Simulated scan of single mutants.
Amino acid sequence: MKLRRYPLAALAAASLLGLAACASSGTADTAKSAAGGSSGGSSQETVIRIPDGGNSGVLALGRKDGSLARALAAVHAKVVWTGTAGAFAPAAQELDANELDVAEGSITSATTALTQSPGFKLFAAVAPDKLGEGILVKNGSPITSVQDLVGKKIAVWHGGTSEYLLLKALQQNNVPVDKVTRVYLQPNQVAPVFASGQVDAWSTWATYSIPAIANTGAHFLVTGGQVDSDNYAVWAVRTAFAQQHPAVVEALYQYLHDNGLKQQQDPAAYINVDTTAGPQAVSPAQKAVELPIDAADGTALPITAADLVRFHAVAQFFADQKITQGFFDVTPYILDINALPGGAG
């Protein structure tokens, strides 16, 4: 159910920045002018600003069939789409600046972002993607093990999923970090660099791995599951919005949870929601790669004490690897969805 399934052409056209998971761009000013709505006793609808999920995923289907609008209308709210879902780093800045209300990212990118833009809280988590993220190499590459990365160039983006997965793989296989070269590129810039052989491997997540495997003749050297990744997907909400409209946050959570379960059962229904043609469409080859990944995905769940232990393991790992300046405790930034009106169901 993660907001991560987009054809590479659409992502490149949007020129997305960032770390692993979700951002918005574009029409934030228009949405901001509508964001003063209030639920509670007022007849005015509360506006909740969410990045557009594009052509695939639970939000895309909810937009098309009206199910998301109905879920929000029950708590006197409506969604305003603020742009295209993409990287989480700019989304965190927009949450902090009151230009966005909700976004999805990874716990790796959220931990890094919270050190700079602490204006949001995490209200739900999805178990780490074991199949769709990892380190890619091209078919026929002489690199057949993590140890073979010594002396090689690996494309990563700083401080999120990409760098985390590479460093986890190196640690697990006792490869010193300084024996590989990290080539820092924006995620949407890597595909042509990887295809042309200017880098030897690419540490990435499903948004990019699916088209690379389908179209470039690539495969995973190791996956997130194989490196024991704790890289949860997380849903973030602007702190002030959660304080003012807790029932809306709970309603959105319930929608995400319920429809994530439905996506597990019928992932094909959540691909190419609007169109099967054009730059936004998932090709048949990509769809074949994506379906088993989607079927294995988890759904949004409340953040538990056990999850928090794993979040802290990520924070400590980033501190140990000098990605962050010391351990960052995300505990104050966790929103207990069970404590909101109606609970988590």
Rank of each mutant, 00 (worst) to 15 (best):
H158P: 00
T204V: 14
N272W: 04
G260A: 12
Q264K: 15
S229E: 09
L252P: 03
A240G: 13
Q172V: 10
P187W: 01
A218K: 05
T204F: 02
Q254T: 13
N272G: 06
L261Y: 07
G197H: 09
V234H: 01
Q226R: 13
G217E: 12
A201M: 08
T161V: 11
A191D: 04
G217F: 11
Y208W: 14
L166F: 03
N272Q: 11
A206T: 12
I143W: 10
N272I: 04
Q171P: 00
A169N: 11
D258G: 02
Q186R: 10
P246C: 13
K262C: 05
A251H: 04
V146E: 03
T275H: 07
A155G: 15
A212P: 01
G217L: 09
N174V: 08
S162P: 05
Q198T: 05
G260E: 09
Q189M: 12
I154K: 00
V183L: 03
W235P: 00
S196I: 07
L165E: 05
V137D: 03
N272K: 08
G132R: 06
Y164Q: 09
F220T: 09
N173V: 05
L167V: 03
L166E: 02
N272R: 10
I154R: 00
V177N: 14
P246Y: 09
G159R: 03
D258Q: 14
A201D: 09
N139C: 08
S141D: 13
H219M: 04
Q263Y: 01
Q172R: 12
A191E: 10
P267G: 04
P192V: 00
G151C: 03
Q254W: 03
V180H: 02
N174C: 01
G225M: 10
I143R: 07
N231M: 08
G134M: 07
V234D: 05
H245I: 01
L167E: 13
V150T: 15
V193W: 05
Y184T: 09
T216E: 14
G134I: 06
V273C: 07
A240W: 09
T161A: 15
N231Q: 12
A169G: 07
V237Y: 09
Q244W: 03
A195N: 14
N174W: 04
V193N: 07
S145C: 06
R238L: 07
T223D: 07
H219N: 13
V193G: 09
L256Q: 12
F194D: 00
A155M: 08
L131E: 15
A201R: 03
V190H: 00
D230R: 11
W157C: 08
N272D: 12
P246E: 11
P246S: 13
L166G: 04
P267K: 08
R182M: 15
Y253K: 14
K153T: 05
F220A: 12
I135L: 07
L256N: 04
F241K: 10
